[in-house]
Design a binder for these strands. Structure first.
Lengths: 338, 338
DNA sequence: ATGAAAGCGCTAACAA
DNA sequence: TTGTTAGCGCTTTCAT
């Protein structure tokens, strides 16, 4: 805790603080000899620049905030890791903001932009509307969104192509011979749900299968929600042979319900989930699942955002649409006898 | 992006910047009328104080850093959540630092203390030595450790009582009638491993069971490590009836090996793990496990650290020793017929 | 109870 | 290539 300042280094090296600053920031306008001498003194004195002074003067915090609904959920953790690694490699820091599923918290974290706690903010939460986010972007705050598309030219977004995702699931199931396929969706208002329903319907059409509203039921992306939704579905209709669950949590709920109802997977019912979480490999039969490139969604967006900060202008590409990939496991494979 | 400054508010309210600052910081030395008028203007102008200026002047960042080995591991995520919630409720922010299992990264993050990026730092990683950490503390930097005890009077620590943890496991197993119990430890140098071995030996003694070195094998806290270690163990000795695994990951490795070797759990072998991760409830039979109070370890330490920052002195309690709790499931319960 | 003024540590115009 | 100087926005003595 010695608290050496730039002026101390400057004096010892017989230069001005400005020159020391130039050396520290890798300016080209410094004589090689001078630079060496200054560096030498910096090392000798173990000088480390004070970040607060630097921030105030340069009007940059070199920090990004990431707002997630819940740090515990592996979905978010993976995205965070992608952001972290990219940001760190570009000399940025990452402030994790856990909104704990509370809208009020999300709004609170937005103020980090206004009060200059961070240079930019990445929202990975669903609850703020496009309009709310757009109005911040309009005011000049750097904002980005992961997980959905926001229709504002100043807001970069990275997300999965959910229409294609759903279609890929249905292709796989129809290939396996299924004609009666149910869709266990998430919250009906979630853009994920809307897009996936769209893809679901498209793929059915392409396969010449009529769409039945009775084969769609909404849950809340949780295991319990999946369990309940599946039971509701089943009470309406008994003859579907496959279920496309909005995520693996809901697929696990289906497993639970099937265990109770003595429905055997995959013989009587094929199941496909989304996210390919670790647990899908530990239940029997293992759950086929669409794996989203979460790490990539985080890292491309962080890169884009930092690039934007540095150029102080919006680069060409704003939307990063990534594709999920089906990982086929036993839950959706018919036995050979079939 | 209007960038209103404290001077703007001051002018409009016909007071000095000092008074506005007093109002903002809840100083008692402001006339009630004046305060009201200033507050009114602050609201009207939607003034939000610039954090950079505030930090520089007050020499506080109101930010804690948490250094973890890997944000993806649920063990760390739970601790982080505890820190986050406590810190936020005390108006602190949390900077997550993912060391990615690299010692060099950990050291890098330590510099956040020196360059005033954060006010204090919580290490949840194992690789920095007590000496290294102590020397920082000695220099006046605020540092805390989660997961192990560091013997320096200025470093608060929260951790699980690993001796008691191991003893509780062995009590449970001997109660079930086991006399030949193996211990699948983690890295042999890890303090967790050392303490648990100590508790393991103590409990055996108390139960009048001789300790056999051949029943101890080391792994690396991973599923694969557990798998390998179990096979090594088994090749040395075949007649143990129970395994205490250093964590649930290693217990999962035991499950994998047992499946291959046709050993039935719990009939031929009882298994107990540590951490009680979610996965323990999805394998069959479910894994009995010691649940550590991770969230609590994070929150008590954050509270302590912030308290220490505010008082600028070390309060009474430095060590927070918490107890794990056994969650008994089928993997360690003998069938009634036994 | 309030204001004036100094300055936290740094960088960036502008001069030289 | 280097130095001088003026702040970045805020808080905090010290007066009053």
């Amino acid at each position: 805790m010695k608290d050496i300042k730039i002026i101390d280094v400057a004096k010892r090296a017989n230069v001005s603080p400005a020159t020391v600053s130039r050396v520290l920031n890798g300016s080209k306008l410094v004589n090689a000899k001078t630079e060496q001498r200054v560096m030498q003194v910096i090392r000798e004195m173990e000088y480390i620049p004070n970040n607060m002074g630097k921030q105030l003067r340069s009007r940059k915090t070199m920090t990004l905030a990431v707002v997630v609904s819940d740090v515990l959920v592996s979905y978010y953790a993976e995205i965070i890791k992608g952001i972290e690694n990219m940001a760190n490699s570009l000399h940025y820091r990452v402030l994790i903001c856990d909104a704990q599923n509370q809208r009020a918290k999300e709004l609170e974290f937005l103020s980090f932009l206004i009060n200059h706690t961070v240079d930019a903010l990445i929202m990975v939460t669903p609850s703020l509307s496009d309009e709310e986010l757009s109005s911040y972007a309009e005011d000049g705050y750097r904002l980005a969104v992961i997980g959905r598309e926001v229709g504002h030219p100043l807001i970069p977004c990275s997300f999965t192509d959910n229409i294609t995702l759903a279609r890929d699931v249905i292709y796989h199931l129809t290939e396996q011979g299924h004609r009666k396929i149910a869709f266990l969706s998430g919250y009906s208002e979630a853009t994920d749900s809307i897009k996936r329903l769209e893809g679901f319907i498209q793929a059915l059409e392409e396969a010449g299968i009529p769409f039945e509203q009775g084969l769609v039921e909404n849950g809340d992306f949780s295991e319990d929600g999946g369990y309940e939704a599946f039971k509701r579905l089943r009470s309406q209709c008994e003859d579907f042979t496959a279920v496309f669950a909005a995520n693996d949590e809901m697929a696990l709920g289906v497993y639970k319900a099937c265990a109770e109802m003595d429905i055997s997977i995959p013989d009587q019912l094929a199941v496909v989930g989304v996210d390919n979480i670790r647990l899908t490999n530990y239940v029997v039969p293992r759950i086929s699942s669409m794996e989203q490139p979460l790490y990539m969604m985080g890292s491309v967006l962080a890169e884009k955002l930092i690039d934007q900060i540095n150029d102080n202008r919006l680069a060409d590409q704003r939307l990063f649409v990534l594709n999920a990939e089906l990982v086929v496991k036993e839950s959706s494979l018919r036995k050979i006898s079939n």
